[in-house]
Design a protein around this nucleic acid. Sequence first.
DNA 1: AACATATATGTGCATTAAACATATAGGTGA
DNA 2: TCACCTATATGTTTAATGCACATATATGTT
Lengths: 141, 141
Amino acid sequence: MPWRLRHRKRLEAGNGEEPIIDLRVERFLEPCLLLLLVEKPAHGYELIDRLNQIWLVPEKQDPGAVYRNLRRLERGGMVKSQWDTSGRGPAKRLYEVTPEGEKRLAAWASAVDWGIKALIKFLERYKATCLEANEDGKLGR
Amino acid sequence: MPWRLRHRKRLEAGNGEEPIIDLRVERFLEPCLLLLLVEKPAHGYELIDRLNQIWLVPEKQDPGAVYRNLRRLERGGMVKSQWDTSGRGPAKRLYEVTPEGEKRLAAWASAVDWGIKALIKFLERYKATCLEANEDGKLGR
DNA sequence: AACATATATGTGCATTAAACATATAGGTGA
DNA sequence: TCACCTATATGTTTAATGCACATATATGTT
């Protein structure tokens, strides 16, 4: 499936194969983490698992990116954390969203709303130009 | 309007103001140029103007990005150009899309199609969690 | 006691895209 | 000739990211 919300790989192909086109929304990991944390406070490792619920196509998550984002969000006051030594295994940072973070997620949501409209506009314009003759706009996978 | 399909500015705010959140689709300039060129062959300077038809919010375009993208697309065989010395003013490179380029645009279109679905999924999930009580999901601008 | 494994949190490095500034050059009109 | 518009580029810097690697603790196994 030629689709991801992030991931940089192979935009400028090179191998024999077709270059894969992925629509990458930059920084999209941030709102995803905020949304997951609003739904339920959690620690990084758990979020890495739950992220696959949000991407359409589950794939291996990058722990580095997740932790980096969580720390940055905390620096910005969007989430706060406390060490959780209960349970088994090493201590974990339990994150929860602050009121600031909820506002930021709301801002993301409205940005996504706009984005959907713009992408639809692009797509309609594409269909109008390139799929006129065809039997009403089917796009490959 | 807190919205753009590209542009990096001020993600990590800093001033007194709210950090602006823009949903940035990476490389989106590429499919926009392809679409505009499919609609009508043109040269760079003209495309810079016509780009504002595609973004929801017109704004100053970056000539550097446009020309670089056109050259890259040409290197990749997606468009081809010829010098046009007719008309007045300095010579211009007139670009048109190749069959390869049309395929690439089609691939972009289906990526955009997927992207819309994924963004909608995100938004629905957000609404479900954060706008339950409210009078049915209004999002600020 | 040694070792493997699962959980959990990070750092460092190379690549890439984008924003912004600057350069080059011909054409037009005062 | 000088200013200005058109037109096409290049250079510089920063931010985001993918990937590989480093660290630490608890648990289970031999």
